[in-house]
């Protein structure tokens, strides 16, 4: 059983919802990321999601776009991100780590080379925003070869009959995009999320995590009522960037993220 599947199983037995923070690897500097990952785990993260910086992050809102730009400015490559995972893994062998990114850097490294390097680093899953099921066969074969989960998005616009086709190729969990828009948008409709999560469950036994537009304890708690996992990205990235912008040091930025994540953890755990 994969580390991701195992973690969801443990949480289900405890009746808890997975908290999945997203940060961009290498933002604002490469040495910042591994200490941040450990601190997020201490603050209640169950699974870590690292954004792989890309020059053209089409699905991201302004907050995460800027994080991608800062990470690239600090020289963060896909190989460097895998090195961060390896370093994290040296002292944490339990917390699942997945990468979220865009097709081109992975394709440029080569699917086979990526799968080998990622497995060696101790990575557990990959979510490629711009590789839908229609384009996935090449990379899926390589990920399966090294027993790595391939996480797929389901959107508010995904027709019901398509959910089954996505689920057939997915493993680990299904990531439901809670709104039509980019990351960090502000129009989350929790009633709609609830009915769509139910629709996904008709087609798949995989856990369902929900992301895009969850920014605080209250919205996380509302989503946790129906989802198996809650992804929080822009709010964390913004909290850190805000500290740095006001002249704070990286340690203070890490603490800001840890504090926010701790609040969200409390919110989720108070869900029915």
């Amino acid at each position: 059983m994969s580390r991701i599947a195992h973690r969801f199983q443990e949480l289900a037995q405890e009746g808890r919802t997975a908290l999945i923070p997203y940060v961009v690897a290498g933002d604002p500097g490469q040495s910042f990321t591994v200490p941040l990952m450990h601190r997020l785990v201490e603050s209640g993260a169950d699974i870590l999601e690292l954004g792989v910086p890309f020059s053209d992050p089409m699905a991201e809102g302004p907050v995460i776009q800027l994080a991608h730009e800062r990470a690239l400015a600090s020289g963060t490559t896909l190989a460097a991100v895998l090195e961060m995972v390896r370093e994290f893994r040296a002292t944490d062998s339990e917390t699942p780590v997945l990468l979220m990114g865009y097709a081109n850097p992975v394709m440029h490294m080569g699917y086979t080379e990526f799968a080998d390097a990622a497995a060696a680093a101790g990575l557990d899953g990959l979510l490629t925003v711009d590789i839908p099921p229609e384009e996935v066969d090449g990379i899926n074969a390589e990920l399966q070869r090294v027993h790595m989960d391939n996480i797929f998005l389901v959107a508010p616009t995904t027709p019901d009959e398509r959910i089954g086709r996505i689920a057939a190729r997915a493993s680990g969990f299904i990531y439901y995009v809670s709104l039509k828009g980019v990351t960090g948008a502000g129009h989350l409709d929790t009633a709609q999320v609830s009915s769509r999560v139910a629709a996904i469950r008709q087609h798949s036994a995989l856990p369902v995590a929900v992301g895009f537009g969850i920014k605080d304890a209250a919205s996380a708690r509302a989503v946790a009522e129906t989802a198996d996992g809650v992804v929080v990205g822009s709010a964390l990235v913004h909290a850190m960037a805000d500290v740095i912008e006001k002249g704070g040091d990286p340690a203070a930025a890490i603490e800001a993220a840890a504090g926010l994540l701790g609040d969200i953890r409390t919110g989720i755990d108070s869900a029915a």
Partner: peptide, 12 residues
């Protein structure tokens, strides 16, 4: 060619 876009646009 192909359709390398996020899931939200696939239906459109």
């Amino acid at each position: 060619g192909g359709k390398f876009v996020s899931e939200t646009l696939m239906a459109a």
